[in-house]
Simulated scan of single mutants.
Amino acid sequence: MRKIAIALLSTTALFGISAQPASAADIARPVYKAPPPVVAMYNWTGFYAGGNIGWGWSSGDGDIIINGAAGTFSGSGDGFFGGVQAGYNWQNGPWVVGIETDFQASAGNGSISGFAGGNTLTASGDSPWFGTIRGRLGVAQDRALWYVTGGALYSKSEYDGIVTGFGPFSGSDTTWTWTVGGGLEWALFDRWTAKIEYLYAGPSSSVPSIPATRVTDGWADTHIIRTGLNFRF
């Protein structure tokens, strides 16, 4: 009888030990999910160059003296333009600092008229080219760069007209002024970006030399809006 009890205990123990692995296999193992891949933020640092097209318009008015008589003048102009730009960006965190220069060929033209006593001035002109040298300060939101910009604008003006009491005249002038604006640049691919930009320019540093005529006071506003593509090197 004792031998039978010992045999039963041994058999029970054997089955208990052999059953443990089966019971452990029935317990669900925890599932560990792989962490999501880390996506690198877009880096705006580096050289870039590209092209742009746009539209510009301007208007102005002021006081004028023609043949010794005081009067007023006004003028306006507009036109398409296109050109190239190049620059460099430095990025530190979300902040992007850069410098950019551009040169544009322009189809802009306009006219000016003045009246002083019995004297009149009528003239027309065009601006075959202009360019800017500007700094840029922006905030990057990954592939989007919002920025403000400011610096200098230079331009070429060619004009001809007539002043009563004097006759016809013509000439050309290269002038400088300041410009400010802002824009949005978007990274399309790793090396290609697109932008839209607005610039405002103040009155020129000098006015065209017109015979028997002198501008005593005046103001002019110029607005530029353009879109372009850049390639980052």
Rank of each mutant, 00 (worst) to 15 (best):
Ala107Tyr: 12
Ala123Leu: 11
Ser76Ile: 00
Trp90Phe: 15
Gly138Asn: 03
Ile99Ser: 11
Gly87Phe: 09
Tyr154Cys: 01
Gly167Leu: 04
Thr122His: 09
Glu185Gly: 02
Gly77Glu: 02
Tyr147Gly: 05
Asn109Arg: 14
Asp102Ile: 05
Ala123Glu: 10
Thr120Leu: 02
Trp186Arg: 01
Arg143Ala: 12
Trp129Ile: 03
Val139Asp: 00
Ala140Phe: 09
Gly77Cys: 08
Glu158Leu: 01
Trp90Tyr: 11
Ser76Pro: 00
Gly138Asp: 03
Asp126Gln: 13
Gly165Ser: 03
Ser127Leu: 13
Gly82Tyr: 14
Ser111Gly: 14
Asn92Glu: 08
Ala107Asn: 13
Asp126Ser: 15
Gln91Thr: 04
Val163Leu: 02
Ala144Val: 14
Ser157Arg: 09
Trp129Glu: 04
Gly110Cys: 11
Gly167Arg: 03
Ala144Asp: 13
Asp173Ile: 11
Gly87Glu: 06
Pro128Val: 09
Gly108Ala: 15
Ile99Glu: 00
Gly167Cys: 04
Asn89Met: 04
Ser172Ile: 00
Ala107Trp: 14
Ala86Trp: 00
Leu145Asn: 10
Ala123Gln: 06
Gly108Leu: 14
Phe130Thr: 02
Gly79Lys: 08
Ala140Trp: 05
Pro168Ala: 13
Gly87Cys: 10
Pro128Leu: 10
Gly93Thr: 07
Gly150Tyr: 06
Ile112Leu: 15
Gly182Val: 03
Gly93Val: 08
Leu145Arg: 12
Leu188Tyr: 07
Gly125Ala: 09
Val180Gly: 10
Gly114Phe: 06
Trp176Phe: 15
Thr132Ser: 14
Gly117Trp: 03
Gly135Val: 05
Thr179His: 05
Lys156Cys: 00
Gly118Leu: 09
Val148Gly: 15
Trp146Asn: 02
Val97Met: 14
Asp142Met: 05
Asp102Gly: 12
Ala187Cys: 02
Phe169Gln: 01
Ala105Ile: 15
Thr149Ile: 04
Thr179Leu: 09
Ser172Glu: 12
Ala107Gln: 12
Gly82Ser: 12
Gly82Thr: 05
